[in-house]
C-alpha cells in the first residue's frame, strides 16, 4: 500500500539575486533564510526515499496561454522540459542555472489522471507543457545537488479567471491521496507559491501584502482545521494576493487532517515568504 511520506509548501521564487533587486539586502537575507529552511525540509524528503514527487503549482502564461487554460492539468509522459525564455528577466531568470530536462513518474501521473477521470474530475492532460519557476525553483532548492525523484507536475489555474474553487482544489487533493494509497509507491507532495503578494494582480499594488490574512491561513493549517479554508472565495484570494493558495488547497486535501508546522515565515514588502511542512504518520 502506498503512502504520502512527505508534504510541504513553499514560496516559489527562491533566488537571492531576484530579492536583492526587488527588496535590497533584506530581501536577500530573508530569501536565503527561507531557502535554508526549505533545504532542510529536503533532507527529510530524501530520508523517506520517495519513489515520486508530486508538485502542485501554477503556470504564469508560459506553458498555457490562449490555446487552453486548464483548471487542473496533469503533466504526463516520460520527461518534462524547463521553460525556455530568451533574455529572461525577473522570475524567469531564476531558471537559467537549472537542468533543462527532468524525469517524470509516468505511472503515478497516469493513475492520477485515469482514476480522476473515472471518479468525476474532468482533468486536462499534457505531454508537452514545460514547467517554469513555480515548479523548478522549489524542487531544486529542496534537493540541491541531490538526485531529483521522478516528478508528477500538476498545474492549477491560479490566475486566469474563472479559477477552480478552493473547495474543488481540496477535493482534487483528496483524490490524489486516494490514488497514492492504492498504489505501491512512497510519494512526496509539495505545493508552491505565495504567500500573499501581488494583490489584485495590479502593478500599482506590487509591494503590498496581507499579513493578517496569511496569519489566518497559517492558524487554520497549524490546527488542521481545513473546513474554513474550503469557503475561501476567488474574490478574497484575488484581493489579498493569495491566488496561489489554490495550490496549497490541493495539498491540504491530500494531507488532511495532518497539521502544518511553519519552518519559515518572513515578511517582505513584495511577498510574505513561507516554508511549511506537515506532520505525517
Amino acid at each position: 500500500m502506498g503512502q504520502i511520506a512527505f508534504g510541504g509548501a513553499m514560496s516559489h521564487v527562491l533566488d537571492p539575486e531576484y530579492y536583492q533587486a526587488a527588496c535590497g539586502d533584506l530581501g536577500r537575507q530573508k530569501v536565503t533564510e527561507a531557502m535554508e529552511a526549505i533545504a532542510r525540509m529536503g533532507d527529510r524528503l530524501v530520508e523517506r526515499k520517495p519513489d515520486a514527487l508530486i508538485v502542485v503549482a501554477d503556470d504564469h502564461m508560459n506553458a498555457f496561454s490562449f490555446n487552453c487554460v486548464p483548471a487542473f492539468c496533469v503533466r504526463i509522459g516520460k520527461t518534462v522540459q524547463r521553460m525556455m525564455q530568451d533574455n529572461a528577466e525577473a522570475f524567469d531568470k531564476v531558471l537559467e542555472h537549472m537542468a533543462t530536462e527532468y524525469m517524470l513518474h509516468e505511472e503515478l501521473a497516469n493513475h492520477v489522471l485515469e482514476q480522476g477521470m473515472a471518479s468525476g474530475f474532468d482533468l486536462a492532460l499534457s505531454w508537452e507543457a514545460p514547467i517554469d519557476h513555480a515548479f523548478l525553483s522549489p524542487v531544486n532548492t529542496l534537493l540541491g545537488s541531490r538526485p531529483i525523484p521522478p516528478l508528477v507536475p500538476i498545474f492549477v489555474n491560479a490566475f486566469i479567471a474563472p479559477q477552480p474553487t478552493a473547495r474543488r482544489c481540496f477535493q482534487f487533493g483528496q483524490h490524489i491521496a486516494r490514488v497514492v494509497a492504492k498504489s505501491p509507491w512512497t510519494v512526496g507532495i509539495i505545493a508552491t507559491g505565495g504567500l500573499s503578494h501581488f494583490p489584485e494582480l495590479l502593478l500599482s499594488r506590487v509591494g503590498q501584502t496581507d499579513t493578517v490574512f496569511d496569519r489566518k491561513l497559517i492558524y487554520w493549517m497549524e490546527r488542521g482545521e481545513h473546513e474554513p479554508l474550503l469557503d475561501l472565495t476567488a474574490d478574497e484570494l484575488h484581493k489579498t494576493g493569495s491566488h496561489e493558495f489554490l495550490n496549497w488547497m490541493v495539498l491540504l486535501g491530500a494531507l488532511t487532517p495532518a497539521r502544518a508546522e511553519v519552518r519559515y515565515f518572513g515578511e517582505l514588502p513584495r511577498i510574505n515568504l513561507a516554508a511549511v511542512e506537515w506532520k505525517l504518520g
Binding site: D86, A88, E89, A90, D92, L203, P269
Partner: peptide, 13 residues
C-alpha cells in the same frame, strides 16, 4: 507585464 524582456517592468519592492 513584469517579464517581457527589455520591455517589462519589474515593479517596486
Amino acid at each position: 507585464v513584469m517579464s517581457i524582456p527589455k520591455i517589462g517592468t519589474h515593479g517596486g519592492h
